[in-house]
Design a protein around this nucleic acid. Sequence first.
DNA 1: CGGGGTATTGAGACAAATCAACCTTGGTGG
DNA 2: CCACCAAGGTTGATTTGTCTCAATACCCCG
Lengths: 229, 229
Amino acid sequence: MAKSPKLAEDMLAHSDLCRDLSQSSVQALLALARLEDYTSGQRIIEQGQRATSIYLPCSGSLRVERVSAGGQRQVMGFLFPGDFLGFNSSGHFLYGAAALEASAVLCFPTDRFEPLLASDPKLRENLSRISNAVLTRLLDHLFAVGQKRAHARLAFFLFGLWRRGASSQQREIRIPMTRADIGDYLGLTLETTSRAFTRLRDEGIISSTDPHRVAIVDPDALGSLAEVD
Amino acid sequence: MAKSPKLAEDMLAHSDLCRDLSQSSVQALLALARLEDYTSGQRIIEQGQRATSIYLPCSGSLRVERVSAGGQRQVMGFLFPGDFLGFNSSGHFLYGAAALEASAVLCFPTDRFEPLLASDPKLRENLSRISNAVLTRLLDHLFAVGQKRAHARLAFFLFGLWRRGASSQQREIRIPMTRADIGDYLGLTLETTSRAFTRLRDEGIISSTDPHRVAIVDPDALGSLAEVD
DNA sequence: CGGGGTATTGAGACAAATCAACCTTGGTGG
DNA sequence: CCACCAAGGTTGATTTGTCTCAATACCCCG
């Protein structure tokens, strides 16, 4: 019912979804959005549930993951304000999503979103670009997990976090996720992940006191380890 | 130019891209298609090249891969007749593609494909469904590479091949790719891949004489190892 | 009848998983 | 205020799965 504070409005307007979009379309989107608050650890999407909404993180951060019957978990990605969440196959989510910290999420019902999509070519274009970007990220991720060794995988993760950080020239990054989260993202155990942090620190590539704050000392070294184009 | 033999016409008509499409749209698509033949090992797409076409494999099979500066290779997937090839980011392919065997590929220039896309909502829907399917496959793939051990990764690969084989109740599958291809697909070396084949054979899950032909002896065991939903 | 590309198998090295101890931090309640 | 506890992080010792290196077998093709 469009009771979205200014934060949400700004977030939406500057998101990839609304790039080059007409004012009226943005307003229409905003009109059907609902802002939801989540506490740390709370689940936004339950794996397998019907996909009745798409989501746009506004503050905080999310973890997207898949858990197998055997209890193994693969973290598919981490989302930050401006990212998009909601792709699905045959109307169901094949992954779950949870808040890494207190987070606010804009929420659009798909049945009311789709008419907008049908009427606005620009919106379609944006959605398809986002879809391609997600695909690209997945290819990078798959490459890292399939081909790199532990410390290089961590470099890939940290480099990605760093480049996505709004503070582009900032050397410090905030790491809202746990070692277990990072491990499951990289296909490693939490112990190996921790050792990889230690190794990058010993090599002088990063420095950190707090486990949830890291300073990039040598971005070039980190980047070449990460091998991101 | 529409000089496509019957094979191509049938292939196109039954592809996911043309599901529920009007006759006229299929004809329009066919009109701008060109059928290209590739020999075993020949490259269809060079990694990094401008994306000027999209592709629809008609016969044979393809390998989609990414090679890093360091020479490591991650095979992103294998394509068979009816599959789709052509997603890209900012107009360039972030992967290469090559023929695993003699193959024929239908080829649509993007600049002439996009007007069709703009005019036909059904075609857009199909493309978006395909995009979601690719995404889904990538999630499965990432899960396998990130969380499974060698023989379970191979089970995942074989199970996927089996389910996609046109012959659904057939127990035999043809494996056009080499052990190195499979290894790079699964994040393993070719030796480990070969050992995994031997292990599945010793466990009585598969049987094979020829390395490029495998019979699924115990589909349930294979499926539970693969853990595909 | 070679000969290159491919597959299998073995032995040893090595990276990551596993098992386990210990430390820190933040929150809770006596 | 401090004891207590739980959750997360680091580090160490050991095991194990996969990689690496190497030898041999195979087979299609020229």
